[in-house]
Design a protein around this nucleic acid. Structure first.
Lengths: 228, 228
DNA sequence: CAGTGGTCTAGACCACTGA
DNA sequence: CAGTGGTCTAGACCACTGT
């Protein structure tokens, strides 16, 4: 019995072993049904998935080729902080640092495409693993889009968690970078001023309306890892 | 005509609008064929893809549910440095810094599961964008697995590029982090000592054999971004 | 054990695109 | 314009798993 997984595995094997060179042309789907003794839909699924994964390149009439430079993609899971901490076997803790309503600063308006008069809720909080700082969250919420946010009891539930449960989103932009810890960040994260922090930045929209922007700071040594 | 994309879009819309609550149960595939007026395979494809994307959760007999905490995944493309630079509209440059053969240090042997006597080629080079440092590459290549590496003209082609064209791989681990620039890194990347560098680390195996390990350092301000 | 998803088949029509 | 992939249909059998 030849399943679509078998076909994928066989093609990957052929690429690895050199039988299929980068840029090389594969047989047509119809020809492959005879090679593998299965229906065309099965071959189509195998090739289609390999194409999605960036291994193959498919064009009508031109056929299916092995990508010359395999489009490597790294997929990272972005779980809730709480679950991430618990997954590590640590005790999760949460502390609200500050919460204030203010006019949205220019950079935020630019980033989320907000109106000039936009008002935002700024929340800063700390996520702990075994009582040690794990992640510092600095969030801005567009109150025009999410008026309920103003009434949430943020002492008990983190904005992260509330938003995930509440908010639909249509578009997300995630950005990773490194930054030197300022005086404040180093205090809160219990590290040296000037230390290298790993920063995850996320902006979220719903139907063209900017909803929220958050910067998540991790203390030195933090790693985001994926394997495939 | 109802295609699988239409079905996906409609389900996402229902989740966003609240018609389908997190944890909520969807109708069975068979029931949905009547809702959308299409074959079961079409519904199956739509639900299957949403499941792969982490929006839905499917179990036999139990049915299909909306994930309570949407398993958000961020996909980042990891292209060849040269292409990445050219994509930005900059002129790509490359400079070989050093190249030496040495016994593999302990951390490398541990990381790649190498034998005690393993010998490695260490290559350090700099990738430039418009003559300014863009990425510092510090690579170790396991010569037992890739003996050809010793004979490559690394003045002309970067190890990155050579490996992509030459090397099949079965397993990759990518790790992102932030690190303070040491004296050497800051010199080469034209930034201050102690500046926060964004680091991409990648280890590659082929059939249980460690092939190469590389650390890619980016100067302050560098961002890795994705949108979906 | 019965209901649900997971996969496959054989056939069909269409859209795109290279020759 | 002809060949290729992209998608759909109607039907089938199976594997898993909750009841």
């Amino acid at each position: 019995m030849t399943g679509f997984r078998d076909i994928k595995a066989d093609i990957l094997r052929q690429i690895a072993s050199g039988e299929l060179a980068p840029g090389g042309l594969l047989p047509t789907e119809l020809a492959l049904t005879e090679v593998y003794g299965c229906a065309r839909a099965t071959v189509a699924r195998a090739l289609g998935e390999l194409s999605d994964e960036g291994v193959l390149e498919r064009k009508r009439k031109a056929g299916t080729r092995v990508r010359t430079t395999p489009q490597r993609q790294a997929r990272f899971d972005i779980p809730l902080v709480r679950l991430e901490v618990e997954e590590l076997g640590h005790r999760y803790g949460y502390r609200l640092l500050s919460r204030e309503t203010a006019a949205a600063p220019v950079w935020l308006r630019t980033r989320l495409d907000l109106e000039e008069a936009a008002v935002a809720l700024r929340v800063r909080c700390l996520h702990l693993a075994n009582d040690r700082p794990y992640q510092l969250e600095d969030r801005w919420i567009n109150l025009a889009a999410l008026p309920n946010a103003a009434t949430i009891d943020l002492e008990r539930i983190s904005p992260n968690e509330w938003l995930v449960a509440t908010m639909p989103f249509s578009e997300v932009e995630i950005s990773l970078s490194a930054i030197e810890a300022g005086r404040e960040e180093s205090d809160l994260l219990a590290c040296a001023t000037g230390a290298a922090l790993f920063v995850i930045e996320r902006a979220t929209w719903w139907e063209e309306n900017g909803l929220t922007h958050v910067r998540l700071f991790h203390p030195p040594g933090h790693r985001m890892t994926t394997r495939y």
